[in-house]
Every structure is written in C-alpha cells, then in structure tokens.
Amino acid sequence: MKPVPFSYERPRDLNSALSMLAASRGSAKIIAGGQSLGPMLNLRLVQPELVVDISGLAELKRAEIRGGELVLGALVTHADIEDGRTADVTRGAMPGVAANIAYRAVRNRGTIGGSLSHADPAADWISALAALGARVTLRSLAGVRSMAIEAFVVGALESALDAGEIVEAVHVPARATSAHWGYAKSCRKTGEFAHAIGALLVDPAAAAARVVIGAIDTAPIVVTDAAELFGGRIAADFKQRFDARAADALLVKAGIDDAAQRHIHVSVLKRAVFEAAA
C-alpha cells in the first residue's frame, strides 16, 4: 500500500526539528531511517499530517567515548555498529547484537535511536542495552533529561518520550574485563522479530549481574540485581546456579499466563546464560 499524503520537513538543525515537533501539537512524526515507521506509513497504520525528517542532522551522527562511556548519537545505524565504524566499549557485545538485527539492507538505514523510540518489545536494542546498563538522553525545547533504558521503555510501542521530545543519544558504560556477556534470541526465521530474547551481563568478580527477559509483548523484564536468579549469589559457577524456576516466577509476575510461552523464554534465557559462561 501507499501512505496517505503527508507534509514533509527537513529541519536544518536539532533545535528547528524540536520547534517543528512542538508546533505540530502531536500531528507530526519524526522519521530517521524509517525502517519501522516506513512500513507503518505504507500500511496506513500511521497517518501523520507532517513528517519531520531528522536523518540529515550531523549533530545526531556522533559517536565518541566520553568519560569512560560510549556516547552514540541517535542516528547511528545498526550497520555502523556492526562494521565497527563506531568505537565499542562492550568488547563485541554490541556489534554482535547489531549484526543480527533484521537484514543488511535494513541495518544500513535503521538507527539505534529510532529503534529505541519505536519501543517494539521484540526489537533487540531495548533488551540488549538494558542488560548493558545503558542510558538515553532525551531532548525537547525545555531541555535535556536522561534515564536508564529500563525506565525509558514503558510498554508495547510505548516509551517515556513526551510530546515534543526526541531521543538524542545513547550512553553505554564500558563492559568490565571480568564481565561475561550472553545474548540469545529465538526467531521463527532469520531476521524476523524475536519471540523470545534473553540477555545478561554477569560479573562474578563484582558479584553482580543484570538480566533481561525480552520480547514478552510488553516492556522487557529487567533485573538489575539478578542474584535471585542464581540462588542468591553471583559467582564464577553462575551457569550451574541458574534457577529456571525463579525466571519462570518473574514471567508469571509479569502476567505471561501461557506456560509454553514462559518455557520458551526461560529456555532462551538459559541459552544466554550458557553463552555467557562459555
């Protein structure tokens, strides 16, 4: 299908983009790479009056290491991360996730900021970045605010973005040399949206672990202090200590009442745990 007619603006800088967004009073949509919004426009699920194209804004295309963390502008693409055109502070974790998002033609245009803004529970970055302990900065004409990824994603396709606000950058903390990373997803076919995602960052040296169970049709389950999933203690034997029942209990609490669905999520998380321990 073809989209309904819309007006189009290409702002010269971030401030004029924010002004257009504010002036539109909710009838405008921001477009960057368009890999999520494009299909929705074409299917006429989304019918904005105005599309504000930010894809040309150089100020959102920065990638730099600042104060020990990686700061990625919202317009950095999955392929930029996959190919190493941006620095990596996660020792391969982020390039690995990026390389398995959809297909290469999509990764060449799809952006990290766009993926987060869209807040699709089945998408990779909201789960992976929550496990890595990343934060987002949001900007509006009123100023800037910053929050953890797990606070940013509120529900299915629902983020904490206020009207008039856009994702400006993602801040990724450096992964400690002692920290293990595991990421697993189950998709019905290559490149499809995942129906289960498990992600974890385990640092036995610091006795700390962050665990994410994603693709659950709502905001991912993010356990920032995941000792409960490893028998109360994070240590080098975390693989043996992984407690599938505790993971299942989290899914029950999140309202997943289908037992087979829960079983798949727990099994995929187990894969991620095994990968982290390997």
């Binding site: 368009g34 894809s55 295309k61 693409t77 055109r85 799809g110 952006t111």
Partner: peptide, 12 residues
C-alpha cells in the same frame, strides 16, 4: 562495509 559516514545510507 562500503560506507565511511555514520547514519542512514542516503542521508545527509
């Protein structure tokens, strides 16, 4: 990977 610039292919 065939690209030098950051950001969506075709943009900017």
């Amino acid at each position: 990977g065939g690209r030098i610039h950051l950001g969506p292919a075709g943009s900017g």
